[in-house]
């Protein structure tokens, strides 16, 4: 027996959520699929593989004011940004939820990023298990899976006429009233079959491959367009700048990428990652070597977005495979 919510009740519930908090869900914008703030439940897309951009925008926006500094009566005052309203994200996929959990490592380790923490605390995740998958998905090789309930507050799995509902956390309990749930004798559909990637032991292989010419050859075709970082749920580099006028300074943070030429250029003009190969290696080393070393988990969750979006087909699945098979000439 499973707990069940009918399609009709789900819509009613989402309508209620929309009244009391921000409701964010997949929507169609031209031919893109984007997480957007919902004004009417009719705009929500239920039938999709995954969104074009990741949901990280809702925890770590593409641009965000960190704080203001104001002059008042001869005093200088720092006014931090405050997130007022609660948010519920409907339709997040298990891989992306895992991605947000990965971002907690760098953002919430002390000293924590206060704004990120506010977004995280005020947001509930209503996950949708994957019934189908894109050809590029490989989450089950990266520590998650299409039905993984680990990182959401509620997980819904579509069955005939409705959804199996797993209420997994206190946040989830507070969100979904018991009276909308019934018990039903339905079983979960099989998980889709995904591409398999040999990720076991990849961190050590990445370390050994560090000085290989492999990276320069791979980077020949990289155009350093940043797309992979911007679509990725677990890329979190940023740039910070102050916007000043007479009375006020506003400190703004915006997305940036380790792939952009000049990202590591420092005063005096030196750039420790000046070659294309060293820049490209950084992205994959961060996901597959540095992140696991520092936090104990892979930094890539296998959503496949960078594979789909890279204009020159730099494919992390192929890279993992190639690095596993690389004959390393000398010990790094």
């Amino acid at each position: 027996m499973s707990e069940f919510i009918s399609k009709k009740d789900l819509l009613t519930w989402l309508g209620q959520l929309m009244e009391e908090r921000n409701l964010v869900a997949p929507t169609r914008v031209d031919d893109l699929l984007l997480f957007s703030k919902i004004d009417q439940v009719e705009d929500i897309v239920f039938d999709f593989d995954n969104t074009t951009l990741s949901p990280k925008e809702w925890f770590y926006p593409s641009s965000e004011t960190l704080f203001y500094v104001e002059q008042k009566d001869g005093q200088t005052e720092l006014i931090p940004a405050v997130i007022e309203k609660e948010t519920a994200i409907f339709g997040i996929r298990p891989c992306d939820a895992q991605g947000m959990a990965m971002n907690d490592f760098p953002f919430l380790e002390e000293p924590a990023d206060d704004l990120y923490r506010q977004h995280r605390d005020k947001t509930a995740l209503i996950g949708l298990a994957c019934i189908t998958a894109c050809p590029e998905c490989f989450c089950s090789s990266m520590g998650s899976g299409p039905h993984d309930p680990a990182n959401v507050d509620i997980l819904l799995t579509e069955v005939a006429d409705g959804y199996i509902a797993q209420v997994l956390t206190d946040k989830g309990k507070a969100l979904l009233p018991d009276n909308l749930l019934t018990t039903a004798d339905v079983s979960s559909p099989p998980a889709p079959v995904l591409s398999e990637v040999p990720s076991d032991g990849i961190a050590e292989k990445m370390r050994q491959a560090f000085d290989e010419p492999f990276w320069d050859r791979l980077a020949d075709r990289c155009i350093h367009c940043n797309i992979c970082s911007y679509v990725c749920p677990t890329c979190y580099c940023f740039d910070v700048r102050d916007y000043t006028d007479k009375e006020r300074i506003e400190r703004v943070r915006s997305w940036e990428s380790c792939q952009s030429p000049g990202f590591t250029r420092i005063a005096g003009g030196h750039d420790p990652r000046s070659t294309k190969g060293s820049r490209l290696r950084q992205r994959f080393s961060h996901k597959l070597l540095y992140f696991p070393r520092q936090f104990g988990a892979l930094g890539c969750i296998g959503c496949g977005r960078c594979v789909r979006a890279c204009p020159v087909n730099i494919d992390i699945r192929e890279i993992i495979q190639d690095v596993q098979q690389l004959e390393v000439k000398s010990e790094a």
């Binding site: 914008v29 893109l32 984007l34 951009l53 593409s62 155009i223 350093h224 367009c225 940043n226 797309i227 970082s229 911007y230 915006s254 997305w255 990428s257 952009s260 204009p311």
Partner: peptide, 12 residues
């Protein structure tokens, strides 16, 4: 409004 300023258009 939906440009994410990745600068891919420039890079290519």
């Amino acid at each position: 409004s939906r440009c994410i300023r990745c600068y891919a258009c420039r890079q290519v």
